[in-house]
Amino acid sequence: MMERRQIVQLWRLGGASVMVTLVRVEGSSYRRAGARLLLAQSGEYAGTISGGCLEAEVIRKAAWMVREGARVQRYSTMFDDTAEVPFGLGCGGVVDLLLERADTPECSALMSAMEGTLSGTTAVVVTWLPGEGRALRRVVLVEGAVVFASEGLSEKKIECARGLRANEQYEGRFVEELRAPQRLFVLGAGDDARPLVSMAALMGWSVVVADGRSQLARAERFPAAERVVADGVNSLGIKASDAVVVMTHSYEQDREILTALLPVAPRYFGVLGARHRSSLLLSEAAARIGLSVAACCERIYAPVGLDLGGDGPEAIALAVLAEAQAVCEGRLGASRRLTAEDVARYVNEGGVARYLPQCALDEVR
């Protein structure tokens, strides 16, 4: 999300030249479909479409490649100098990049939608990819309403765009949902909240800090936050899609917060404090709102944060944000660590041969 902010900022400065979008991935890739890079005429750029292995090549040729209009360019990142696709770098996949001029109505509509999401809207962008005599065409829907459609698109195609689902594979089309930044409410403005706010802002999240103690809830203490307010929890408008971290260090305040927010059930609801403290808080809040303790336990993360080790505000902030990120992305509990079974499967089934040169394959075997 921070990348989107940087791309929008560069676009607003003027002089944007080429937008590059990763629209398809086969095999392994550092970035997922939807990753973007915006190139300016000055040579400055924002965003990435790989782990650094493609950027220099794409930036060098981007303006030349779109001289006759938008195009899709395929790049291989496999260990294979004889491949038909032009770039072998060893990352293990094939990617399709959409390159389009930034001065077209289609790109302007995309950029406007990206900018709008930073203010809290959600957009769906349907792009008919160019190729074999077909020009790029695009439909942009914001909150379900069509706000842009390329000239010449039929009503049938526009209506069809409404029914397409983001992240699904469609022949000749790229469909994506541009979501608003994750909102994080940090309830408590003590010194230990400062690194958490800074880290979340680096992720591109929209961070609000709230504390009833006006001497702590000051904007200069949290320059990375979008808002710092000396208000109670009921005035914040917290929704089920939000993330919340409670760190007031005040038992009475925490009890009021849990009483107010447990019925809302935020997407992530972390409560700082020892197990015995959180247990007492939860039992009292549950009695107040008429929910079972078991139901309340399902709605909070306490003790807050992943068990990463370390000590001090920065380490705690990292553990909390890592847990919040995992929960918001639906990935908590999943591990990508290789097992001996994984290695055996790749080697014995020959899957590894796609990615390694023969000399390395011999060593593995």
Score class of each variant (00 low, 15 high):
5 R>D: 00
6 Q>I: 00
23 V>P: 00
23 V>G: 02
24 R>A: 12
34 G>N: 01
51 G>D: 07
58 V>R: 10
63 A>D: 11
63 A>E: 14
63 A>H: 06
70 A>T: 07
71 R>K: 14
83 A>L: 10
106 E>M: 09
112 S>R: 13
116 G>P: 05
117 T>M: 08
129 L>C: 03
135 A>W: 00
139 V>N: 06
140 V>M: 02
141 L>F: 05
143 E>G: 08
144 G>S: 05
147 V>H: 04
156 K>S: 08
161 A>R: 05
163 G>A: 11
164 L>T: 05
179 R>Q: 10
182 Q>L: 10
182 Q>T: 07
187 L>S: 07
191 D>F: 12
194 R>N: 08
195 P>E: 10
195 P>L: 11
196 L>D: 12
198 S>Q: 15
199 M>R: 13
216 L>C: 06
220 E>M: 00
232 G>W: 05
235 S>A: 15
238 I>L: 13
242 D>G: 09
264 V>G: 03
269 F>E: 11
273 G>L: 04
284 E>Q: 11
284 E>K: 08
289 I>W: 02
297 C>L: 13
304 V>I: 14
305 G>M: 09
307 D>W: 05
312 G>A: 11
325 Q>Y: 13
328 C>N: 04
338 L>P: 06
350 G>V: 12
353 A>H: 07
361 L>M: 12
